[in-house]
Amino acid sequence: MAPFASEQVPDAPPGERRRARLVTYTAVVVLLTAALLQLDAWPMTAYRLFSSVRTADGVSLTLWAEGVDGTRTDLRPAAGEVLGMTTHLYRQLEDADPAHARELVDAWLGLAGMRPADVSQVVLERTTWRMDAETREKHETGHAVVAVVTP
């Protein structure tokens, strides 16, 4: 046998080729139909696998620093800042023990360029809102204080 001799692979019988084409074409048609009709029946979805569900109602969390002089500073970061990578930790603040809550708050204040000595308290607030279907404007429907931490 020659070292680089290629083996001849016999062609599949016509019935198997036809069945393979039928399965392939059916899968492509089903996927395209799901995308065009915006169907969300698993496993055929309208490409929303890695996105949250978007409805007219929503909730947002805001972290406020209240200065010793009574001023309130929004600690939410601008898009792309390092502080923006930690907003998922806001939910931990609600159930954190006091020492851990102070660590989180001190870190957020440091990232925001604020000294803990200049802050009387940090407040985590939950705001609910509803979006108007016609104007696409958000209207706040409620506020609730989730956690208050003294740095």
Rank of each mutant, 00 (worst) to 15 (best):
P116G: 04
S51G: 04
R21E: 04
L61V: 06
S52F: 15
A65D: 03
A78Y: 13
D40Y: 05
G84R: 05
L83I: 07
T135A: 05
V105F: 10
Y90C: 00
V149F: 03
D74T: 11
A133Y: 01
V123M: 05
Y25A: 07
L89G: 00
V9S: 07
M1F: 06
A65S: 14
A65T: 04
Y25Q: 11
H88C: 05
G113W: 11
E125R: 13
G67E: 09
A2P: 10
G70C: 04
M114Y: 14
G67Y: 01
T141Y: 04
V30D: 00
M114D: 03
A78P: 07
W129S: 08
P116E: 00
T33R: 00
P77C: 15
T71I: 12
E125Y: 02
A96V: 12
V105D: 02
D40M: 02
L39W: 15
M114W: 13
T24R: 13
T135N: 02
M131P: 01
L124M: 05
R18K: 08
P77I: 01
D11G: 05
T87H: 14
D11T: 12
G84F: 01
P3A: 10
G84P: 00
D118M: 01
A78T: 09
L75V: 10
V23H: 13
T62Y: 11
S120D: 14
V23D: 00
M44H: 12
Y25N: 09
G110F: 13
R17M: 08
R48P: 01
A27P: 00
T127S: 11
G84D: 03
A101L: 12
R48V: 04
F50R: 08
A107N: 12
R115K: 15
Y90E: 09
Q38N: 12
P77K: 00
A65Y: 14
E81H: 03
Q8Y: 08
L49S: 12
M114G: 00
D106F: 00
V30A: 08
A101Q: 02
Q38K: 12
E125A: 06
S120N: 09
R102Y: 00
G15T: 06
L89Q: 11
L32S: 13
P3N: 05
L109M: 14
L63R: 03
M114A: 07
E81W: 02
A5S: 11
Q8L: 06
S51C: 03
S60I: 13
A20P: 01
A46I: 01
L89Y: 09
G113F: 06
R17E: 07
V145W: 00
R76Q: 13
R17H: 07
R19L: 15
L124T: 02
E140P: 02
G80A: 14
L32Q: 04
A34E: 15
D57Q: 07
G142V: 03
F50Q: 13
V9K: 14
R130I: 14
H88R: 14
A20K: 13
P13Q: 12
G67T: 11
E94T: 15
A27G: 14
H100V: 06
L83M: 05
T86H: 07
R17K: 15
G80D: 02
T71L: 15
T86F: 11
Y90R: 03
L124I: 03
R126S: 10
L93E: 01
D40G: 11
S120C: 01
A27K: 01
L61W: 09
L39Y: 05
